[in-house]
Amino acid sequence: MKAAKFDYERPADLDGALRLLGGGGDVYAKVLAGGQSLGPMLNLRLAQPGLLVDVTRIPELTRVEDDGEALVLGACVTHAMIEDGKVPDVTGGALPSVAGAIAYRGVRNRGTIGGSVAHADPAADWPTALSALGAEAVVRGPSGSRTVPVSEFIVGVFETVMGEDEILEAIRIPKLSADARWGYYKVCRKPGEFADAIGAVLVDAEHSVHRLVIGATNAAPVTIADAAEVLGGNGVPGASFDLDAARRLVDGADTNLDDMERHIHAVALKRAVEQVAK
């Protein structure tokens, strides 16, 4: 189980990386941003790029900044750095708890937040969690930067809005108010496995945020941006958000899940909301 041949470059800066991605002619180039998902696909020969562009050492991609309203994490910040609190937490514990439940420690030490988002596996944690947190993806291309909400960044299984000549530069995570509440429930066969269902909820009344996300749906996460009403009148989740209410949301979402899968997603969503209600 050995990878097919590929070439490898490790550009010193973002411009160099963009040049390699854009200028290859008929060489299929792929960004290596930790490689914890790409590595297995290469070994299994499911992916056979001609060139790997290793961006993990590019300083712009490992930066950690506070821009006042949000925390900006370079795409190549690792899960373990977030888990261990080596980057500031502006989410009242949401970020480190999500990071700490991704795969296994050995993977978290090398895997990166940007790599995970750009890989766009619906069963991964970050696409759902960051959608719920209202995070944005900062995308750099030959013609400059653009910002896309993570909830719109992923459009399908392994599919994003990025062009082949673009790189995910950073994730911008808005600061939550002190009394914001976070709920996150992942259903998987065992720890470290990819999720069968994820429910995520953020209630940040001060910022008028009442957001639900149905994740791991075999497609892009489904974000319900204005969930104040379904969560119960004034937006404070209570007993009214039961399994039936969750199920109605799942049924109303555009997914191709079967009946049992929709049930499990509804349970995940309900349990996430229960965490917030507590």
Binding site: G35, N43, R105, N109
Partner: peptide, 9 residues
């Protein structure tokens, strides 16, 4: 840090 040597080139 512990890492997986099979998926790191």
């Amino acid at each position: 840090e512990p890492v997986r040597s099979c998926i790191n080139f």
